[in-house]
Design a protein around this nucleic acid. Structure first.
Length: 478
RNA sequence: GCUCCUUUAGCUCAGCUGGUUAGAGCGCCGGACUGUUAAUCCGUAGGUCCUAGGUUCAAGUCCUAGAAGGAGCGCCA
């Protein structure tokens, strides 16, 4: 009977010293014509294969190169060298897939993220990307675990929707009409009633409003899916297609919302600390190397793992918008006129202001609540002062806003007035108003940018490097 | 959308106030090496200097336009 392949992770977890094993994987390094570092994706690291090259065909030895796919049959033994406890003494080696290094773009050394972005189909093979995407999976898993353990139901809200009234950004239209082929109405406008769905449709910008429908029946729900914004945003924190997590809770006010947001963030980070130490250590060292030659003020105040531990172990700072403005007006950069944008009650906080609050003043995540009504969405609950709404932003060091959420407005007259202020026709959101007409109750929720959370946990500088196939203005490769 | 920066070998970069055969490190390839850990040592090859115009006796270097990439800002998650 021929030997069955064993995954490297299983060998390392439960070694059977002295037994003959078959492993298959990709070569990460081949040193001294003798030592192969082999990775098969089952774990982050490698297993060492020792080759007595005198006993092998020269043709085979030559093909054992960087990122070649090979199969090795050999004896599992305790390693004679330092740096690993186990190794496999190769008896047979089969080349499964050669990797011609004359033409292969990747090299066995550190490469820039910009270069790797131009080779998206190869970049996951690098150690950095391997660490990032393993952690990305871990965070996604932890999202479901957290909500499941806390009694939330996962709701699939639509990706294509006729909902055009959310005001969360520019939309991508969805149509089966070809360019210049759209049928027109008598007055010369495109006749959307003849389109596939019989109405004008677009890709979703948020699942929140549909999430509220579900929360009014199931109590606690969450969505976790792709969202699309056609904004011409060119930053390291924005994607045109990104994944968002949106919990919604019935019978919950803005305080419950803040508690959920804080517990949730801490849970995700703790889960990765508990389950992805090798990956985190690699990313931590990677950042340390990158920052080695940087000026002290440009470096991170703490290492990656220390930062994650710090966030988990400390309470988030919670302040009102009004308080934030007061603090900012008393700040050194304000007095020295270093801020580019005005700090005035009624003006939205700019990135420089958020950064000062998070990185200079409190040095930890900050939740800001009770924003002026004019800078927040129509569905947020109006506070008793008639000036502010029960909205919140959760601000993280380095990446700014990770969460935006609110208690929702449930009073029919107030909601209608707010919609009028935003020129949202009532007939478009009759169903949303119905939720307030029939069995309405206070409820709250938020949206967490999944990529931003992964960015924070991995310490990656650009959100394009934490999603396999980034979609940004002018780029939709693969 | 706005501002700034970058584009020279496979990769990362150097190339001064324009001057004649365009450099380095790493990688690749060839060789050496029986315990390596980003292995090490020796050697070879490798370049439309992003594109198109222009200025000049002479342009990688200066000017104009365009393209691609990056950083920051705005919008947000």
């Amino acid at each position: 009977m021929s030997l069955k392949r064993t995954e490297i992770a299983k060998i390392l977890a439960n070694p059977t010293i002295g037994e003959t094993v078959l492993v298959k994987g990709w070569v990460r390094a081949f040193r001294s014509n003798r030592f192969i570092a082999l990775n098969d994706g089952s774990n982050f690291g490698t297993i060492q294969v020792v080759v007595d090259f005198e006993n092998f065909d020269e043709d085979i030895i030559k093909k054992i190169g960087f990122h070649a796919a090979i199969a090795v049959t050999g004896e599992l033994v305790e390693s004679q060298g330092k740096g690993q406890s186990l190794e496999i003494i190769a008896k047979e080696i089969e080349i499964l897939g050669e990797c011609n290094l004359d033409d292969y773009p990747l090299q066995p050394k550190a490469q820039t993220m910009e270069f790797l972005r131009s080779n998206l189909h190869f970049r996951m093979r690098t150690q950095t990307m391997s660490a990032v995407f393993r952690i990305r999976h871990g965070v996604a898993f932890a999202v479901h675990q957290f909500f499941n353990d806390n009694g939330f139901n996962y709701i699939h809200t639509p990706i294509i929707t006729g909902n055009d009234a959310e005001g969360a950004g520019e939309i991508f239209h969805v149509s089966t009409f070809g360019a210049n082929e759209a049928p027109l109405t008598e007055d010369g406008k495109v006749d959307w009633s003849k389109d596939f769905f019989g109405t004008k449709t677009n890709l979703t910008v948020s699942g929140q409003l549909q999430g509220e429908i579900a929360a009014m029946a199931l109590g606690k729900i969450y969505t976790f899916g792709p969202t699309f914004r056609a904004e011409n945003s060119n930053t390291s924190r924005h994607l045109s297609e990104f994944w968002m997590i949106e919990p919604e809770m019935a019978f919950a006010d803005i305080n419950d919302d803040q508690n959920l947001a804080e517990d949730f963030c801490k849970y995700l980070i703790q889960y990765i600390l508990d389950n992805y130490q090798p990956e985190l250590q690699f990313l931590d060292q990677r950042i340390a190397k990158l920052e080695k030659n940087m000026k002290a003020e440009l470096r991170r105040p703490m290492g990656l793992i220390d930062t994650l531990n710090f966030v988990v172990e400390n309470d988030f700072e919670r302040i009102t918008y009004t308080e934030a403005i007061r603090l900012l007006q008393g700040s050194k950069p304000y007095k020295k006129k270093r801020f580019e944008f005005p700090v005035e009650w009624g003006e939205d906080l700019a990135a420089e202001h958020e950064r000062w609050l998070v990185e200079k003043k409190f040095k930890k995540p900050v939740i800001v609540i009770d924003y002026p009504k004019q800078i927040k969405a129509f569905y947020m609950k109006m506070n008793d002062d008639d000036k502010t709404v029960a909205g919140m932003d959760v601000l993280f060091p380095g990446i700014g806003e990770v969460i935006g959420g609110s208690e929702r407005e449930t009073r029919m007259d107030v909601l209608k007035a707010r919609m009028a202020e935003y020129d949202i026709p009532e007939e478009e959101l009759e169903w949303y108003l119905d939720l307030r007409r029939f069995g309405s109750t206070p409820h709250s929720g938020f949206g967490l940018g999944f990529g931003r959370m992964v960015q924070f946990i991995t310490g990656m500088g650009n959100i394009r490097d934490v999603i396999p196939f980034p979609r940004t203005p002018g780029n939709a490769e693969f």
